[in-house]
Design a protein around this nucleic acid. Structure first.
Length: 499
RNA sequence: GGCGCGUUCGUCUAGCGGCCUAGGACACUGCCCUCUCAAGGCAGAGACCACGGGUUCGAAUCCCGUACGCGCUACCA
């Protein structure tokens, strides 16, 4: 039996939670849960210029919303676990300590090259059509001399000595990948001249300290993995297993980017995508169960997840498919749950004026059955039912007259229907969904009597009452609206037809 | 430029030598249901499995090459 699985997701708070980060987090969490392991959230904020606490909060909050809060690591409001600190900005002394070990062991050295000198070197190589690569020229500076220059105050970065030879990655997704260390670009800077540590170094130190057993991340890191492997070896640490996931792609098949796609998780949430659908969708982006099942809960995903079925080619983010899944999951929610998730959308609409007044809890509960089957996004519920919460809907007179009719017919229809509705629609009637409806029957009788298509009559009434041609079922809508409002809208529409 | 990875319907994918004249899902089209819109049901169109060579009695599945695409190539992460 191998040791307990420990995996991690290491977001960098230089932007809001990215859909790709969420997917990587999910795969790590699924892997950990499947194997009874531990899933860790580590914040990689060594780039102090671009990292912000606001982004960190967005990321942690987003992960929590997805149900992907770490078992260990940084969580909303703090940290948990015994391998911390889990924020790289709090680990600088540790990095300095490990860097010192490398220096003392002769595996790292001070580099006095100035940024300008490095830039010139790079330009020269490019002009000569050679791949960019550091010359390793400071390797030859004797340790004593380096110490003297350092003591004199000359700034120096610390470079890790890249050994010669091939590096083999035994990837759980891609198999054996061999890369020659000579193509890695020369000795690697691990500490900037100001002493701050760089990414490739911190990841490895952290993965070692945190006992990471499996590194599951995007394919964009595959080319950098040899650097990490060499660092693990230099530190005398056991190698974790690596698994590189296919990239999530823009429609043009380039790596998904903010520029070409909607990448912020929070934006999807704000649109009314729900957590269950996002999880389901993301899990199936680059992985499959090997079966034909498509709608899967996180529990089912946990039970089935494995790295064997991870796809190797990149996967285009298909929003239409996400929307379909969202509709599937909305329909699977318990009514009370759906109502609670709808609440903020109605509140927001009331606040910004899209609705004339706030929606009551009872009202949302009542309209649930009308919209449940009709929305793919939570936000769409508001548009479908806004007629219930406005004083008077804006009615386009042209829509009031069904195609086969003229204005006079429409007016006659509204007038004839009025007494039937006045009798049939009460204030606060319960819905009649699926049941035998005497009001509907009466109106059908009226239509037959006058030689109208019932559908035309209903459409005229629909537009008069809601202002729209696509709405939830007409009679249930009118009952929810109530008798007074229904009749008032009928009268208003009739007045427009007369005028 | 160098190095690496990848390539099955528009998209997500099943497939791990014969069950494939390639299956499912989304999207699309039509029909049914129906007061509109949905949801649901049924049907259809859609992939010569990137291309070219091998290996094999037999290849989408194994090997080699080519093309194309993507990623990486910082004192960013």
């Amino acid at each position: 039996m191998s040791g307990t699985v420990r995996v991690r997701i290491a977001p960098s708070p230089t932007g809001p939670l990215h859909i790709g980060t969420a997917r990587t987090a999910l795969f790590n969490a699924l892997y950990a849960r499947r194997h009874g392991g531990t899933y860790i959230v580590r914040v990689e904020d060594t780039d102090t210029a671009r990292s912000t606490t606001a982004f960190e909060a967005d990321i942690l909050e987003g992960l929590r919303w997805l149900g992907l809060e770490g078992d260990e690591g940084v969580v909303v409001g703090g940290e948990r676990g015994t391998h911390g600190p889990y924020r790289q900005s709090a680990r600088t002394t540790r990095y300095a300590e490990v860097a010192r070990q490398l220096l003392d062991a002769g595996k790292a050295y001070h580099c006095f090259c100035t940024p300008e000198a490095l830039e010139a070197e790079r330009a020269a190589r490019e002009a000569a059509k050679l791949p960019p690569r550091y010359s390793n020229r400071c390797r030859s500076i004797a340790p004593g001399e380096a110490a003297t220059r350092r003591a004199a105050g000359e700034p120096a970065a610390l470079r890790f000595r890249i050994p010669d030879g091939p590096v083999v990655i035994d990837d759980l997704v891609r198999g054996r990948v061999e890369i020659d260390a000579a193509t890695l670009g020369g000795d690697l800077v691990i500490l900037r001249a100001d002493g701050s540590p760089l990414y490739h170094f911190t990841v490895v130190v952290d993965d070692v300290d945190m006992g990471i057993t499996h590194v599951i991340r995007g394919e964009d890191h595959l080319s950098n993995t040899p650097k990490h492997i060499l660092l693990f070896e230099a530190l005398g640490a056991p190698l974790p297993r690596f698994a590189h996931l296919p990239l999530i792609l823009n429609a043009d098949r380039t790596k998904m980017s903010k520029r070409k796609s909607q990448t912020a998780l929070a934006d999807y949430r704000a649109e009314g995508f729900i957590q269950e659908a996002l999880i389901n969708f993301l899990a199936l982006l680059g992985w499959s169960t090997g079966s034909e099942d498509e709608v899967l809960s996180v529990g089912e995903l946990e039970g089935r997840f494995d790295l064997d079925h991870v796809q190797r080619g990149g996967a285009v983010f298909d929003r239409a498919r996400l929307e379909w899944l969202n509709g599937q999951w909305i329909r699977r929610l318990e009514p009370a749950d759906l109502a609670a998730r709808l609440r903020p959308f109605y509140d927001a609409a009331a606040a910004d004026g899209r609705l004339g007044r706030p929606a009551g809890d009872g009202e949302i509960a009542a309209l649930l059955p009308l919209i449940r089957e009709r929305i793919q996004l939570l936000s769409a519920a508001v548009e479908l039912t806004d007629f219930l919460f406005v004083a008077a809907p804006a009615v386009d007179p042209a829509l009031l007259v069904p195609k086969r009719w003229d204005a006079a017919t429409a007016l006659a229809a509204l007038e004839a229907a009025r007494p039937i509705l006045e009798r049939g629609i009460g204030e606060g009637d319960p819905l009649l969904l699926e049941a035998e409806d005497p009001t509907e029957a009466a109106l059908r009788g009226l239509a037959e009597e006058r030689g109208w298509k019932a559908g035309d009559l209903f459409m005229a009434l629909r537009v008069a009452v809601t202002g729209r041609t696509a709405t939830p079922p007409l009679f249930d809508s009118m009952r929810l609206l109530g008798r007074a409002a229904t009749l008032a809208r009928l009268d208003a529409a009739a007045a427009r037809l007369r005028g």
